[in-house]
Amino acid sequence: MRPWQVFLLILALAFFAVSSAWKVLYVLTYVLLVIFVLSWIWTRFSLRQMVFRRNSSSGRVQVGEMFDEELMLDNLSTFPKLWVQIADGSTLPGHWAGYVASMGGRKRARWRARSICRQRGRFQLGPVMAMSGDPFGLFRRHIVLAPSKEVLVMPRVYPLANFTLFTGGLPGRGKHSRRALQTTTTPTTIREYVNGDALSRIHWRSSAHYNKLMVKEFDLDPAVDAWIFLDLHDAVQAGEGEESTEEYGVTIAATLATYLLQQDFSLGMIINGEHREVLSLDRGDRQIERVLELLAVVTAGPGPELKEALAMDSFHFGRNTVAIVITPSNSQDWHESLRHLKLRGVQTAVIGLDAASFEERPPDEDTFSLLEGSGVPVIHVKSGESIAQVLETGSVVRSR
């Protein structure tokens, strides 16, 4: 029964009690009035001195990992809570942190919420609402116990032992690198001191060991920059959810970027999607974080087609640059842009996503073979294939 209905009932009983002077009606009127007032007072105090806390391991998690948080509700007053319902406004898919408790004075309720993260993106935890009321169900009270906070679900990253395009050695890191005449950050070996060697190049520990002066030799610093170009133009995407070219492309980009940065490459990334995103060249763990943060939120969209995007961003690719294009596009329009980069001395490679396999339709014409004939290495990735295995040992046609 709603409060206004009870109030009208009290007024009606009071009217008939006065007009009839029947004692029973007076008693009913007083009883309902007392219940009405006490219920309102109970409701006003039902959520006082309630404190909510949530503790999670981190505000960042990767797809496929468990997001686990501990939630606590404390009643700091001596007034018991007949029932308290906790509602969590989280937008993280599959994550439910709601709870219903009956609490005595100065008691604590504790529970856990666990969910497997299936979707990358930036999500909201909270706000946390509490609802309670009186024993008769006449009144309800809602308050906000905790504001919202963000959790970032980053794309899955597969560990790689090697990258199939570089099985012959990473660019700039071959065994036949030239010795530097000047001191660099890449010492490789030692040799015996000869007249004219700088004293700063003497390796004193080896000199003491061999009982003669030994000097360090240095390689030229690796000067190869790596760029990953991720094509998320919505017109060429296929599939839905986890089994889509969009998610495969993002996962491949995250896995490959992490591997190259762990190999001490200087890496940049260009994403052609709903928004054009350019991540400048950098190296190290901080760049890995930037890459994963960017890939967590990118989505396919009506950006420029791959041909136009490659032309716009070609100035990023100079000599001694590795450019890896990840795309499901089966068009030949952008092939010429890639060949042009190759003529400029850019080492190009393509990771081609087989869009037909993501929609279970007959395969399209294999236009990637035209690139392979031009000397551009291509890795083919189909729906359901192990991304790590394909990147490590997948079938690839190398330059002829």
Rank of each mutant, 00 (worst) to 15 (best):
K307M: 04
V100C: 08
E69V: 05
P159A: 13
R344K: 12
F79V: 09
G241L: 05
S132G: 04
R319H: 10
R173C: 07
N330G: 11
W204L: 02
R120Y: 03
G168V: 05
F368G: 00
Q85I: 09
G174H: 10
R48N: 14
G121Y: 04
D333Y: 08
V61C: 05
P377F: 02
V24Q: 09
V100G: 05
R191I: 09
G303H: 03
D313R: 06
E365F: 12
G373H: 13
V18K: 07
N162S: 12
G384V: 04
D354M: 09
S357I: 06
A87N: 13
G174K: 08
V322D: 02
A198Q: 15
H316W: 10
G133S: 09
V84R: 00
F163G: 02
V291G: 00
S77R: 10
L47D: 08
W96D: 13
D354Q: 12
R54M: 10
T255H: 01
L165I: 10
V27M: 09
S77W: 14
S206W: 02
L338M: 15
F52M: 04
E308K: 14
Y26S: 10
E70I: 13
E247K: 12
D313E: 15
E289I: 07
V194F: 04
V128Q: 00
D282Y: 11
G64E: 13
L28F: 15
F315I: 05
I324N: 01
G174R: 03
R319Y: 05
P362L: 01
L145W: 05
A208C: 12
P159L: 05
E240N: 11
E243G: 00
T327L: 00
L73Q: 02
S90L: 06
S90Y: 07
S90K: 03
V250S: 02
P3T: 14
K382C: 08
G105N: 10
S56T: 11
S395F: 11
Q85W: 09
L82I: 11
I387S: 01
G174Q: 08
L310M: 03
L71M: 12
R344S: 14
V24I: 15
Y193H: 06
E359P: 02
S280L: 10
L220Q: 05
S369D: 13
A21Q: 09
P127I: 05
L33E: 08
L25Y: 05
W227H: 01
V250G: 03
R179I: 15
D134G: 01
R178W: 07
R118T: 12
D264A: 14
R205N: 14
I10N: 08
A161P: 06
V157D: 06
R54E: 11
D354N: 15
L71A: 01
K107V: 13
A146I: 06
V151H: 00
D285T: 11
T164H: 11
S90N: 07
Q62S: 12
D68R: 14
T189F: 04
E360M: 11
D221I: 07
E308R: 08
A146C: 14
D333S: 03
D282P: 09
I387E: 12
S374K: 12
P155T: 14
L279V: 14
R400G: 13
F67G: 02
R53A: 03
D364C: 07
S132I: 00
L152W: 00
G126D: 12
P377Q: 04
T185H: 01
P159S: 15
R361P: 05
G394V: 01
D74E: 15
S329W: 01
M103N: 01
P3I: 03
I202H: 04
S331W: 03
T164N: 13
A223M: 06
V128Y: 00
T167S: 13
V157A: 03
